[in-house]
Write a protein that binds this DNA or RNA. Structure first.
Lengths: 217, 217
DNA sequence: CTGCATTTTGACCAACTAGTCAAGTTTTTG
DNA sequence: CAAAAACTTGACTAGTTGGTCAAAATGCAG
């Protein structure tokens, strides 16, 4: 849906010029910042344009509608966000695979909190722009991994646990540190900024979840 | 800060009339619905007024600013939301107390998802309207309970775990089902509506967290 | 260098929305 | 039952914002 720029030539396969490449990236980067802070309705095109260093009509030359920027950003973000889940190896050691996954998600939460917030905000408001995407890409992937986890449980390598709720729990806990950052800071204060904070977080989360699903005899 | 209505009389202690009581409640109930769905900026006063069954100027007679409704609602909500945490009994059995707390929070997530979303949205956007409230009410309460949990760990009644991260984890997992409802539905489909779903959720969450913090020998 | 396509922008518009106001209606009170 | 207080609202305003447009500036292929 997200076409490049107006094509005044015939309807052939649209090529992207060097300038288009640069400017679209500039716009998307600026928009991520603004959208993730103020939400879709709370963001003005002017804000994005200013942050991207161009005029509003120029921005609209690349993305004719505000909605276009938003959707492009969401799909881009979500794809990247999902990669670690896809990387879970069905043949690996369950605890090890999940440890890797959780660790990676916590890292992402720290390095790209805006992306997490952009997505959280969208889902919070009923995912009007990406419910199709969720159904088409998210659900199949989760279903696939749920089968793997269920097999692990069956083989006695994990305590009996519902795969879906386990995945939700991992998402919830890891993204919490990005999405609710302000609340975490309000409570833990200066600790949050300190060097080892991410490791401490990872340690706590891993300890509870992994012990929670380790097979018991 | 949220004064009742314009007082045309002298500056005495303002009394609330019967009509004021009714209409303020009507407005707040309507506003919770709309704000939680569309966010602060995404909500118009007209929307709230229509849902509350009154004209816009009349609504503004009770809450002179849109912001007033929003803040009142947030503080009301957060207070109620925090009660179960305050109820954790320092002298009770740790696992039992936490089981009760988690169960209650999952119930609240199901019965008042709008309240959860309203709050989540506010925090997500940096809590501009309630950061004071967080510092003044949330932090002290959490600090207080953290001491209790730390003592429980010291007494060997819980596995070594950071109290703050444990509390965050409980919040994250329980509120996830309200805040990310759309995503949960996109993945689990019709299961979500089914009768026993809340119990199944509670069971999964409790199983992982409680086993995760049960003392190991 | 020339001419066409692409890119850029100032000026503008229509729709929307928070909040005002003055004039009316209803409720309360003495 | 009157008069005052409380309540209600249609009509309006000022500010904002998504998007248009025509014309100017720039880039680029031959």
């Amino acid at each position: 849906m997200a076409k490049a720029a107006k094509q005044k030539t015939s309807g052939g396969p649209e090529k992207t010029t060097r300038i288009q490449e640069i400017n679209r990236r500039l716009i998307l980067d600026a928009a991520l910042d603004v959208f993730s802070t103020y939400g879709f309705r709370g963001t003005t095109i002017d804000q994005i344009a200013e942050k991207a260093g161009m005029s509003k009509p120029n921005l609209l030359y690349y993305f004719p509608r505000k909605q276009n920027i938003y959707v492009t950003l969401l799909e881009e973000t979500l794809t990247e966000w999902l990669a670690p889940l896809a990387d879970i190896d069905p043949e690996g050691d369950p605890i090890e695979q999940l440890r890797k996954y959780i660790t990676l998600k916590i890292k992402m939460s720290e390095s790209h909190p805006e992306a997490s917030r952009l997505f959280a905000n969208e889902v919070l408001h009923g995912a009007p722009a990406i419910s199709d995407f969720l159904a088409k890409h998210l659900k199949p992937l989760v279903d696939e991994k749920a089968v793997v986890i269920r097999r692990w449980v069956g083989e006695g390598k994990l305590a009996p646990v519902d795969p879906y709720h386990l995945i939700f729990m991992i998402w919830a806990t890891t993204q919490h540190y990005a999405d609710f950052d302000v609340q975490v800071r309000a409570i833990m204060g200066s600790q949050v900024g300190r060097p080892g904070f991410r490791e401490q977080t990872a340690q706590a989360v891993l300890s509870i979840i992994l012990n929670g699903i380790r097979p018991r005899d």
